[in-house]
Amino acid sequence: MEVVLAIVIGFLYGGGLYLMMRRNLIQLIIGLGLLSHGANLLIFTAGGLRKGGAPILADGEKVFSTIPADPLPQALILTSIVISFAVTAFALVLFLRTYQTVGTDDVDELKETETE
């Protein structure tokens, strides 16, 4: 299973970086999205894949009867999903405004602030 996920993560990173290097703003944002998904999946995989119950003790239990899954990576991923949701929403608005103001979605045309 780790191998499959490793390959998926590789694809997500590869695809994300490829899209980020394109000139189109929309592709740039999709690339950023793929990259953050890749990172999330990496945390999930690196945290250890385990078949097990939820880490919640049933009533009256003092110890787990089966080894539960590690909840921390999931908590981390949930946090980072929320963050990337917010940031992506902001980036979308920013790119939309840029498109309206500058009139292009080509990154190469945005040379206003270059230091020559």
């Binding site: 994300g16 980020m20 950023l32 990259l35 953050s36 890749g38 990172a39 999330n40 990496l42 945390i43 999930f44 995989t45 690196a46 945290g47 250890g48 921390l72 990576p73 981390l76 980072s80 940031v87 980036a91």
Partner: peptide, 17 residues
């Protein structure tokens, strides 16, 4: 955002270790 993704990936691997 790219740097955040790198940071996050680093955190993931470190947690795994």
């Amino acid at each position: 955002l790219l740097s955040s993704a790198l940071f996050l990936a680093g955190i993931g691997i470190l947690y795994g270790m």
